[in-house]
């Protein structure tokens, strides 16, 4: 069991941390979410048939629960630009894009990250978030709309 777990950890932890970062916007918190998710997986190892979807599910739900806590509730950023921004590859543009993504409400952001970064299907995204497929579609659509408000449509989407 431990060898299998270790193998999965080594193979997936870094990728999972990237997903977590896109959700929470902080590498340290992302690392904590990954460790917590793997710890939960280890505790439930014998009951889990498909470890990878379980890991992703635990990660996303742990993060959503975090955003509900009063001391972690997200606040609108005062640093965002009033008008659209142009994405590029520079550090400054990345920071602006990150700020734009973090402005998207948590569940919508989770849909965007799982669909477009992890390349999950609608059905797998629904399972990870514990919502139905129609809700995934509508949340994804709203998330894209929210991003479009900040990043010019033709350049981003």
């Amino acid at each position: 069991m431990e060898d299998d777990f270790r193998e999965l950890y080594v193979a997936r932890a870094a990728a999972l941390r990237r997903t977590a970062f896109l959700l929470c916007g902080d590498w340290h918190q992302a690392e904590d979410l990954v460790q917590v998710s793997f710890a939960k997986l280890y505790a439930a190892w014998r009951r889990v048939d498909r470890p990878e979807p379980y890991l992703r599910q635990v990660l996303v739900r742990s993060w959503i629960d975090e955003t509900r806590k009063p001391h972690r509730r997200e606040r609108p950023s005062a640093d965002l630009p009033d008008g659209p921004i142009s994405p590029g590859s520079s550090f400054e543009d990345r920071e602006l894009l990150k700020a734009a993504l973090l402005r998207v409400p948590p569940r919508q952001r989770a849909c965007l990250v799982l669909r477009f970064f992890d390349d999950l299907s609608v059905a797998d995204t629904a399972r990870a978030l514990g919502i139905n497929e129609n809700t995934v579609k509508s949340q994804t659509s709203r998330g894209l709309d929210a991003l479009r408000e900040i990043v010019p449509t033709k350049e981003l989407l």
Partner: peptide
Amino acid sequence: NVHDTLRDLVADEPPFVL
């Protein structure tokens, strides 16, 4: 596109100690 944009956001990933 969105996929590339999200990839770009994690381009400056710090080292990760497993």
